[in-house]
C-alpha cells in the first residue's frame, strides 16, 4: 500500500507539521509520497524531498492552490487518490478545510485528528475536547486521515527523494480569492514553539494582555497563546487561541497566566511537557494539570517573574 501526505507549507517554506505527518504515514506504509500543492512552492517541495523515508515528492502549482482553495485541492487530489490507499493531512486549519472535502468526494469517512496509528485500519483520536480517546476501525478501502501533529515526532531530514512536477487541474469557478491579512510576527509559531506563554480573561483588556504577556514571551523567546475566553473578549487575536476550538500545542514549557483552566482550554495544552500556572484563585482547575503552580495575582507575579528571569540570565 502507498500513502500520500499533503504537505503543510506557506508556499515559501515547509512547515514541520509535514515531517510529523510523514512519521504517522510511515506507520502505515514504507511507500510515502508527499504532495506539495501551492504556488511558487519549489523550495517547500525541495525541503519535503529531504524528509527521511519519503519516496517521492509531487509538486503541483496554480494560483488557486497557492491560495489554499479547498475546491482546487479536491480537483487535484481526488484523481491522485487512485494511486494511494491512504491520504494523510496535518490537522491545521488548512488541512481541516481541505481533507473532509476529499474524503466525501471519495465517499469515505474522514478519521479526524489521529493521535496514534494502531494498525493499518485502527486509529486513536480524541473526542469531547480530549476528555475521551476513541479507538476506531475503518472499513473503507481508502483512508482519509487528518493527523494531530503534536502527537508525532518529526521524521528526520536525511532523505533525497525526487521532486516530480504534476499538472494542476482547472480551477474552480465558483470560489474567488479576495485577499488575506496575515499577522507578521517575529515570535516563533504557536504550534512549533518550545515555550508558550498564554494569557486568560484575567488580563481584562487587550492593552493589558500586550503589556503583561508579550514582554514575558519575548524574554523567553516564546510564542504567545490565549484562552478562548480572552479571545472571545477581544483581548487577543483568534490565531492565539489554544484549546479544543483553537490550536493544540505541546511545547516543552507552557506558562498559563490568569487562565482558570476550562475543559476546552486544557484540551489544547495538557500534553505540554511542563505546565506552569499563575492564578490568584487557588481552586482554579488549571492547578490540577500544572507541574508548578504559583497562587498569586499576575499583576505582581509577572513583574517578579521577569526580575527572577533576568537574574537567572534570561
Amino acid at each position: 500500500m502507498a500513502v500520500l501526505v499533503i504537505a503543510d507549507h506557506d508556499n515559501a517554506s515547509l512547515k514541520e507539521d509535514t515531517a510529523k505527518t510523514v512519521t504517522a504515514a510511515l506507520k502505515l506504509s514504507s511507500d510515502v509520497d508527499v504532495l506539495v500543492a501551492g504556488q511558487g512552492a519549489k523550495a517547500a517541495a525541495d525541503a519535503a524531498a529531504k524528509i527521511t523515508g519519503v519516496r517521492k515528492v509531487l509538486l503541483a502549482e496554480s494560483a488557486e492552490l497557492g491560495q489554499g482553495l479547498a475546491e482546487a485541492f479536491e480537483a487535484l487530489v481526488v484523481p491522485l487518490a487512485a494511486n494511494y490507499d491512504a491520504i494523510l493531512t496535518p490537522s491545521t486549519s488548512q488541512g481541516r478545510n481541505v481533507s473532509p472535502r476529499i474524503a466525501a468526494k471519495l465517499d469515505v469517512a474522514q478519521i479526524s485528528d489521529v493521535i496514534e496509528v494502531v494498525d493499518a485500519n485502527t486509529f486513536v483520536r480524541p473526542i469531547y475536547a480530549g476528555n475521551a480517546l476513541e479507538t476506531v476501525q475503518s472499513s473503507d478501502a481508502k483512508k482519509v486521515i487528518t493527523v494531530r501533529p503534536t502527537a508525532f515526532k518529526p521524521a528526520g531530514d536525511g532523505g533525497s527523494a525526487k521532486v516530480e512536477t504534476i499538472a494542476a487541474p482547472a480551477a474552480p469557478a465558483k470560489t474567488h480569492f479576495v485577499g488575506q491579512q496575515l499577522v507578521k510576527s517575529e515570535r516563533p509559531e504557536l504550534t512549533a514553539a518550545k515555550i508558550v506563554v498564554s494569557g486568560g480573561r484575567a488580563m481584562g483588556s487587550a492593552e493589558e494582555f500586550q503589556k503583561v504577556i508579550e514582554p514575558l514571551a519575548d524574554k523567553l523567546g516564546a510564542a504567545v497563546g490565549a484562552s478562548r475566553a480572552a479571545v472571545d473578549a477581544g483581548y487577543a487575536p483568534n490565531d492565539y487561541q489554544v484549546g479544543q476550538t483553537g490550536k493544540v500545542v505541546a511545547p516543552e514549557l507552557y506558562i498559563a497566566i490568569g487562565i482558570s483552566g476550562a475543559i476546552q482550554h486544557l484540551a489544547g495544552m495538557k500534553d505540554s511537557k511542563v505546565i506552569v500556572a499563575i492564578n490568584k484563585d487557588a481552586d482554579a482547575p488549571i492547578f490540577q494539570v500544572a507541574d508548578y503552580g504559583l497562587v498569586a495575582d499576575y499583576k505582581t507575579a509577572v513583574p517578579e517573574l521577569m526580575d527572577a528571569l533576568s537574574k537567572a540570565g534570561k
Binding site: T122, V136, Q137, S138, S139, K270, F287, G293, A308, K311
Partner: peptide
C-alpha cells in the same frame, strides 16, 4: 464506516507542586 472499538480515558496528568515565589519558580 468506522467501528468504535473502545472509548477510554486519556492518561491523567499528576498534579504538581505549588511554589511560593516567582524566584522559586524560575
Amino acid at each position: 464506516r468506522l467501528k468504535v472499538v473502545k472509548v477510554t480515558e486519556p492518561p491523567k496528568r499528576a498534579g504538581g507542586v505549588k511554589v511560593e515565589t516567582a524566584a522559586d519558580l524560575v
